[in-house]
Design a protein around this nucleic acid. Structure first.
Length: 266
DNA sequence: AATATTGTTCAGCA
DNA sequence: GTGCTGAACAATAT
């Protein structure tokens, strides 16, 4: 589920449901989800405080507490936050959950255990330790910054867009869409891109991220001209009627249109 | 039964 | 040092 647009939606969701309530208990049904902290420690540091704000960096969600810690949530491939009041609404794969003083709950629901949770004191130190590049939406906000980031890259453009240490937040799906909207073949070498290509990529990176955020995570809210709505091998391209092809890049299956995104013949 | 799945990390190799 | 590939993590759907 989670690339940058999903995390931004999660941030709004948690912000609208879970701030300012006193935390009365913390439960960790599956401690393997914790990273660099014990269940006892995270429980004692969160109990009796509250969340005062929420922020994101790339695919990470941060919840700032009243006692100057930050809860860090990474959702892996299948994680999501779920706020619920009634036990009947409790999701199926709760690895960690908080109970507030009004009896409501905020759960970390994660079917596959690829997510992780930790608690930190120093935000900048965490970003550095995880080797995260600037947030693709908030911090890569000019074409000059974008070009500077890509200037030293030698590999393929799809790999570069997904490289969290270069810029943070873009995953397999978003990179497919950005490349499709820009008409660029996924395996194009970064150094082979011209000014026009770079301009298109930068523009479409912002457009795709913002349209995905505004779609409220409903795929049917995306424009029909988006490849994300036609993302399987052999489907018809919504722009040219050609055939969508599958391609393996950086170990992930990507999709592209061989007519709209031609290989460079240099 | 085989394959794929929105993510990250690490080993091995060029 | 860089970049690519495949594996591992785990659980589900097709």
């Amino acid at each position: 589920m989670p690339e940058l647009p999903e995390i931004v939606n999660f941030k709004h969701y948690v912000g609208a449901t879970s701030l300012h309530h006193t935390i009365s208990s913390v439960k960790v049904p599956n401690p393997n989800i914790l990273s660099d902290i014990s269940p006892e420690s995270i429980k004692s540091k969160l109990t009796d405080t509250h969340f005062k704000s929420a922020s994101h960096h790339g695919k990470y969600l941060f919840l700032q507490t009243g006692n100057s810690h930050e809860l860090v949530l990474h959702f892996g491939m299948t994680g999501q936050p779920v706020y619920y009041k009634n036990e009947n609404d409790k999701p199926d794969y709760v690895r960690f959950f908080i109970t507030f003083d009004d009896g409501s709950h905020l759960a970390f629901d994660c079917m596959r255990m690829l997510g992780e949770i930790t608690l930190i004191d120093d935000h900048e130190e965490f970003i550095e330790q995880k080797d995260l590049g600037p947030d693709a939406l908030r911090e890569v906000d000019s074409i000059d910054i974008f070009k500077e980031l890509l200037g030293n890259k030698r590999g393929m453009i799809k790999s570069a867009l997904m490289d969290q240490s270069l810029l943070a937040g873009i995953g397999n799906e978003c990179s497919d869409e950005i490349l499709y909207q820009s008409g660029i073949y996924p395996k194009t070498k970064v150094q082979a891109l011209d000014e026009e290509n770079l301009g298109a990529l930068f523009h479409n990176m912002h457009a795709v991220l913002e349209i995905k955020i505004d779609s409220n995570l409903e795929i049917q809210n995306l424009p029909d001209s988006y490849i994300l709505r036609h993302r399987s091998d052999g489907e018809e391209c919504p722009r040219c009627g050609g055939t969508i092809q599958q391609i393996k890049v950086s170990g992930r299956n990507g999709y592209y249109c061989s007519d709209c995104q031609p290989k460079l013949t240099t």
